[in-house]
Design a protein around this nucleic acid. Structure first.
Lengths: 209, 209
DNA sequence: TGCAACTAAATTGGCGCCAATTTAACTGCC
DNA sequence: GGCAGTTAAATTGGCGCCAATTTAGTTGCA
């Protein structure tokens, strides 16, 4: 009746917040995600925490061990290889649409983000790197105009989180990622699909994020 | 202590069973999946039913409407196109590994399944078609040796289930699928990657299953 | 001192109850 | 007869309780 509609309790994207926490390094591989801690940390009910964790299990971002709990699963090298293979397939498949859709405005934003990342390489926290990096790739893949593929890409990224290799162990890896961003930007400006494909492939296979 | 270990309650893959039911046409697009019915039909507790439904929601196989329930979501043509695009990217990316891995024994099994499908085209039920068709593609994609990609492929298939186009409306579509299977078989025998890629692409874009 | 058995504390997890909400049925007025 | 308003039946959904299980801590014996 009223156009305002009752506000009701809008469901908080708890699963997303927990995923973000894992992404930014709040939980290390193999670490248990204790329900009680999460309740407190995210100020949520046990019920909601469990639902969120179950969701992440379905997405394979974490694993569940009966009567032990939930934890960031450690993934073996074979699985990591398979994930990367899949990512290469999907992410490179978006290149054509991205190159076709890119415009000056977006290029500007991407450059701004890439610069921000460069700045964060020195002095920023792991959370900063992760966030800015996500921003860059998000904006880029969003250009593809295919939400399904976007979603697949992010899911696969979160799944490889359980790999130590993935977390920018070395400073070199971080710098390499930084260089890759700028190189991708160049390729985009030149509308060079082939080059962008190469870069993305290398970016995934060499670094990860 | 005892080596036998308590049998405990082994969790039934309820979500999978429900997904199978949807796949084989037990529920049509837009139809509500009433919890009480599912409890009875699958002889499960309400709790388990809800968990299974939530899982399918996460996988986007069904949708959830607050206070209304769960139903097979009707997907719009744009989304269907995006899903198909993603499927083409992933499924064709497996071709190289498949061709490299295929052996006489597997070819034999594939042929047997393809024949079975041909037989079912006349006289079989929709459930039969669906099951045999799945068997064929399952075995083929399994050859890729990449479980991650296999999983992605099946998830995407289940997600496009909400499209009417997907359900072999016409007899022609069914026959076309049948011909495609045999053609794929030939391409596999000839180790012809290019041809197989073409066939898979056409198979996805024209039919769907 | 080392180890095994036992006990206590911590943590997970199954599940059912019942309130909130929607849908269907019914009633009565125009 | 048709339609709006009311009531009853059906269905969903939030959530907390407590048993089952694991882990940590303690005690006792060789």
């Amino acid at each position: 009746m009223t156009s305002v509609m009752r506000k009701r309790k809008q469901k908080r994207p708890l699963a997303g917040e927990i995923a973000e926490a894992i992404r930014t390094g709040a939980y290390r591989t193999g670490e248990w995600l204790r329900q009680i801690d999460l309740e407190e940390k995210f100020q949520a009910t046990r019920f909601d925490v469990r639902a969120a964790l179950d969701k992440l299990v379905v997405l394979k971002a974490i694993e569940h061990v009966p009567n032990r709990g939930y934890r960031v699963a450690e993934i073996d090298s074979a699985t990591l290889r398979h994930i990367r293979e899949a990512r290469v397939a999907i992410e490179t498949a978006t290149v054509a649409s991205i190159v076709a859709a890119v415009d000056a405005s977006t290029l500007g934003k991407l450059r701004e983000i890439a610069e921000r990342f460069s700045g964060a390489v020195q002095g920023g926290t792991r959370a900063d790197w992760s966030r800015i990096n996500s921003e860059f790739h998000h904006l880029m893949y969003h250009l593809s105009g295919n939400p399904i593929m976007e979603e697949l890409i992010w899911n696969l990224r979160d799944r490889s989180r359980g790999s130590d290799v993935t977390v920018w162990i070395s400073h070199e890896a971080l710098q390499r990622s930084d260089r890759d961003h700028h190189a991708m930007l160049e390729a985009l400006e030149a509308r060079d699909s082939v080059r962008l494909t190469e870069l993305i492939t290398g970016h995934i296979l060499r670094n990860d994020p």
